Computed example of a mutant assay.
Amino acid sequence: MNILITGIHGFVGSNLVMALGKEHVLYGLDIVAPEKKGVLKTFSWKDVEAGQLPVVDVIIHLAGKAHDTKNTAQAQEYFDINTGLTKKIFDFFLAFRTQKFIFFSSVKAAADFVVGDVLTEAVIPCPKGPYGESKIAAEDYILSQKEKWENRKQVYILRPCMIHGPGNKGNLNLLYNLVKKGLPWPLGDFENRRSFTSIDNLCYIIDGLIQKNVISGIYHIADDESLSTNELIEIMCNVMGKKPHIWKVNKGFMTGCARLGSVMHLPLNLERLQKLTENYVVSNAKIKAALEIDRMPVHAREGLEKTIRSFQ
């Protein structure tokens, strides 16, 4: 097939090129357009406005502004990019014979924290902050155009949780650097569960959506298994050949330290403590049912080990 990937020079885009390039003709769309092995040509966003993009079978829309954990980005930037670019490329999709549109949203568009045991597609979206709000606004725009594509085209809104793999940058790298230095992890008394998404599992899902006749809809994306932060640190240490230093400091004491950190603007504050220790388990049952599979091909632990080895 002929496939257009927006944000093709990013982490996920680069991995999709490697996964799909052998069997499909790939085009790119990005803010920069250097030559890329496996990509026939990369276009700019001005080419969308000029109607100069090739007519393709599938559009995979990755381009967006990532969640800024340092909170330095302006709110409008998220809406200009995450919502505005989605509208632009989706309007192009509607105007031409392209049959499949795969939009990368985020679980943060559904919920900043999980109420109950697991996050499913049945949740009523309640994002917090401009990142999640801009993503749900993009989702809403796609759904508002449903009468134009329903029964004619296939549209998939994907909400992956934390994606990781060789070449990614983010919170996983920060934790790795902490563990690499041999610094102790003082939050071992908190036993949380979190879902992750291996880039290999993600590429497998995208290939399935391209190849199979899957019903349009919203799908949450995650590995089959959830892991605790303590288990994650143990995995990192095993890969590095180090002994994990996990301190089970009393929860109440650590919460008190975080409360003090909020007042004194220290690295460990209440908001960060919550993010580090909260449960965030995401169900992948719907996407597996749609693809008619029982399990994802890569175990969560196996995927994380591969990612950690790439950091070395």
Rank of each mutant, 00 (worst) to 15 (best):
133 E>H: 12
47 D>Q: 05
288 K>N: 03
161 C>M: 11
137 A>K: 11
233 I>Q: 01
245 H>M: 12
209 L>K: 11
123 V>G: 00
305 E>K: 09
293 I>P: 00
66 A>L: 07
107 V>I: 14
43 F>L: 12
96 F>G: 15
72 T>S: 03
125 P>W: 15
283 S>P: 02
164 H>S: 05
233 I>L: 05
189 D>K: 12
167 G>A: 04
217 G>A: 04
207 D>I: 10
140 D>H: 05
111 A>P: 13
150 E>D: 13
50 A>R: 15
306 K>T: 08
90 F>H: 01
129 G>A: 07
16 L>A: 12
136 I>D: 00
75 A>G: 14
63 A>T: 03
178 L>W: 04
1 M>Y: 04
56 V>S: 07
104 F>V: 05
189 D>E: 15
281 V>M: 00
260 L>V: 10
218 I>R: 12
97 R>C: 10
179 V>K: 10
60 I>W: 02
212 K>H: 11
39 V>E: 02
34 P>M: 01
99 Q>W: 11
149 W>D: 00
104 F>D: 02
218 I>W: 11
213 N>H: 15
150 E>I: 04
214 V>R: 06
250 N>A: 08
59 I>W: 07
173 N>I: 10
19 A>S: 07
260 L>K: 13
140 D>V: 10
245 H>L: 13
197 T>L: 15
138 A>Y: 00
117 D>F: 03
95 A>C: 10
95 A>K: 12
25 V>Y: 09
273 L>G: 02
79 F>R: 11
253 F>R: 01
13 G>C: 05
32 V>R: 01
81 I>M: 06
108 K>P: 07
217 G>I: 08
22 K>T: 03
101 F>R: 06
15 N>L: 02
254 M>V: 14
281 V>Y: 08
157 I>W: 09
22 K>P: 00
108 K>N: 09
46 K>H: 06
88 K>I: 11
204 Y>G: 04
258 A>M: 06
26 L>N: 03
206 I>W: 14
275 K>S: 01
148 K>T: 06
182 G>D: 06
139 E>G: 03
193 R>A: 11
48 V>G: 13
279 N>F: 14
181 K>S: 07
